[in-house]
């Protein structure tokens, strides 16, 4: 039994059309996704814009309505009804991409960080203050800054406030949706290091959503590659980066710029090969609608979306 199990998750958005605004079709943002998170590990969800990776994360925490499929958290189905949801809301928290817009600019840090505490725990003012100060210290901000407003912080500091909020209730799982995409590299490094530190300290599990393969490789133990709402490949970080099997993954990994100007020519040639292969083999790897097939295991951990043979 996995820590978090997602089974055949589908999130379809209706498309309204016609004179009466009836539902004429659906956008299949997430179309049958299954994966399992192990406790204390980081699972990376990768894909290009529109692949459905963020929708998947948002559906797990309940921000997007699930069309079908289920999500089991520590053995309990959290898609079933809203009442059981409430108790898990504490255990699963989310970190958002943009530290500039995800914090209410009119609230002080103490109110921002205490907000989840107020929703779930009854603390006296003094206890609350102490907890917030502890949390700020944990994320490396000075406890005196509780009376400041978000605009008084830099981007990296703001993202730490977002993290302080997320860890306030001692969650077990954090869904991080592009947590460093809006940050400069040096600030990004700070936030990534810090996320790893508190993972060890608080025994956290991450679902790490990003389009940045460098960040994903650095952070994740297991990786799932999404394309048009489906998984094309899943495996350990090593498997995905060192021996990608699906043509889509190959092309994606090949496209990452290498920080070595010597390899420029080599990489260019390699990319050309992969692109040629991609174009030639496209129909073998995708169905008539251009969607990926179901995942087939090629080893214990490595799954690839390949068509049924024969």
């Amino acid at each position: 039994m996995g820590f978090l199990e997602v089974k055949d998750l589908k999130v379809h958005f209706p498309i309204k059309g016609g004179i009466f605004g009836r539902t004429v079709d659906h956008v299949k943002a997430v179309d049958g996704v299954s994966f399992t998170l192990e406790k204390g590990k980081t699972y990376g969800l990768v894909g290009e814009s529109g692949s459905g990776k963020s929708t998947t994360g948002r559906a797990i925490i309940g921000l997007n309505k699930i069309t079908s499929g289920n999500v089991t958290f520590e053995g309990n189905d959290i898609t079933a009804n809203n009442r059981s949801r409430a108790s898990f809301r504490k255990d699963i928290q989310m970190i958002f991409q943009d530290p500039y817009s995800s914090l209410n600019p009119k609230k002080r840090v103490i109110d921002l960080v205490a907000e989840p505490l107020r929703n779930f725990e009854k603390l006296s003012r003094k206890e609350e203050r102490i907890r917030v100060q502890e949390l700020l210290e944990l994320v490396g901000l000075s406890p005196e800054s509780i009376l400041k407003y978000p605009h008084e912080f830099s981007g990296g500091q703001r993202q730490r406030i977002g993290i302080a909020r997320a860890v306030a209730l001692k969650p077990k799982l954090i869904i991080a949706d592009e947590p460093v995409s809006a940050l400069d590299v040096s600030v990004q490094a700070q936030v990534l290091n810090f996320m790893q530190e508190i993972q060890n300290e608080l025994d956290l599990t991450y679902l790490f959503i990003s389009h940045d393969l460098g960040v994903i490789k650095h952070m994740c133990d297991h990786i799932g590659i999404m394309y048009k709402g489906r998984f094309v490949e899943e495996g350990t970080a090593n498997e995905i980066f060192e021996s990608p099997q699906h043509i889509y993954t190959k092309r994606l990994v090949a496209a990452i710029p290498e920080i070595d100007p010597h390899k420029r020519e080599e990489l260019k040639k390699f990319r050309l090969e992969v692109n040629t292969e991609y174009e030639q083999a496209y129909n073998d790897y995708f169905d008539e609608e251009g969607l990926a097939y179901g995942l087939k295991p090629i080893s214990d951990t490595h799954l690839v979306a390949l068509p049924e043979k024969g």
Binding site: A189, G214, V215, I216, H218, M219
Partner: peptide
Amino acid sequence: SIPNAHGTQDKLHVI
């Protein structure tokens, strides 16, 4: 400080 998809590093440098 850059996480590199082609290399391996444990900890990123923070300025």
